[in-house]
Design a protein around this nucleic acid. Structure first.
Lengths: 225, 225
DNA sequence: CCGAGCGAGATTGGATGCAATCTGACTCAC
DNA sequence: GTGAGTCAGATTGCATCCAATCTCGCTCGG
């Protein structure tokens, strides 16, 4: 049951703070907020129909995660990553994901099928040109694997690391050729999971991750003023 | 209750939220809060002379870091780590610290001396039996090295991981024999730094980290509920 | 004696109000 | 023309206020 593009009405979330956090993450995926964008408390509060109090808590959380920058008496804005910082997210992902993947228990067939289904959805989103859905589904694909490790704290850290670059993720998927490559490599990973070849899975993932680097450099090279 | 005499210009920390966060971290180091302790908003606010608003933001931050647990309409409490979770903090530290240490640039002599000085202070705190100071200085020693790597995002993640076990750190230092071992091993690390033997530094650190495991098991074994 | 039901007090979640601070445009002296 | 000074509007930081919810001891029927 995957409701495509239904992210605006998540009243299912218990608290207002969680709602605001989710909305902000969605806005990042959708490039509604891009690196450098200011985040106004009053505007966000109005948009979600809550007061500034929960908004402030949510912003503080995102800032502590490093997703937002905060300057006292000035406000929050989406953090702009330097190339060096982006490199560090790759470094952390490489070492933490390897540990997680090596510890994955055998995947039951239904779980493998669900994973493949997510990858299919990525292909469909790609066909529609829906970058936002792709970004979300791509995270979903990866974290379904990670979560299966049972290493909840490590997965939580990985989530934080991924979120640091959420604002950039759509740019990495921009190119149709990359999109196909991503889907194909995901399929290879599912196969490695099926035959329980963990080392192959790790090296596939390393290759997969490195494959997004060229797109990244394109993001960081054009600094006109 | 309103102290609007305007005398509060001495705030060392810029904001009330940061002040609350720091106080909470200090309370954890000092075992003023121990795993499982509830954290009452009103009490904390009164203790620091601020209102509940900044306290709530601070608590939300600590909860998002995993230091506190939060249950809606019930409150915050210091997170109790399971043995499995503790194991994960070791795992993350092992892989992230190795990456950081391998990238350390040469330490100038004054920096090495400062590092040694911190280790001396640990020894002095040990002699005084001041566990709180030991815990703080021990963090200081390690993060002085890490920070020198320049990998600020990785160091930030390491800080988060360390903070997860801050509430337990004093227990790990409880035993006088461990205290001496820690100081000695720190000295060995300084020496490895001096001669720029990174691989030796990494393996010393691995050994150092593993050395605290026995104390840990002692913490987790006696659950006579 | 014991468990379900109940209510007062404690506590949190969120809204609102206001002072402090920043920003950006405007003025004016040089 | 240019740069320092300043002033209004925008925005944040924090305090305060109220409603919603939970906790826990008490009562009461079985």
């Amino acid at each position: 049951m995957t409701a495509q593009t239904g992210a605006e009405r998540l009243d299912a979330v218990s608290g207002a703070v969680a709602q605001v956090v989710e909305e902000l993450r969605a806005m990042l995926f959708a490039r509604d907020l891009t690196p450098g964008s200011p985040v106004r408390q009053e505007a966000l509060a109005a948009r979600l129909g809550v007061s500034r109090a929960p908004v402030r808590e949510a912003l503080r959380v995102l800032a502590s995660e490093g997703v937002l920058d905060h300057v006292r008496n000035v406000g929050y804005r989406v953090k702009v990553l330097t190339a060096a910082e982006f490199e560090q997210t790759y470094l952390m992902r490489r070492v933490l994901e390897a540990e997680v993947l090596r510890r994955l228990p055998p995947f039951p067939t239904p779980a493998l099928q669900r994973l493949s289904a997510v990858n299919e959805q990525i292909a469909e989103a790609s066909a529609r040109g829906d970058l936002t859905a792709m970004a979300r589904l791509n995270s979903d694909f990866h974290f379904r694997m990670f979560t299966a490790s049972g290493l909840d704290l490590v997965v939580a850290e990985l989530r934080r690391v991924w979120q640091l670059s959420d604002g950039y993720r759509a740019y990495l998927l921009h190119d149709p050729i990359s999109q196909k490559r991503i889907v194909d490599e995901h399929a290879e990973m599912v196969e490695a999971l099926r035959v329980r070849d963990h080392e192959r899975l790790v090296s596939l993932m390393d290759h997969h991750r490195d494959g997004t680097r060229p797109q990244l450099e394109a993001v960081f090279t054009p600094p006109p003023a």
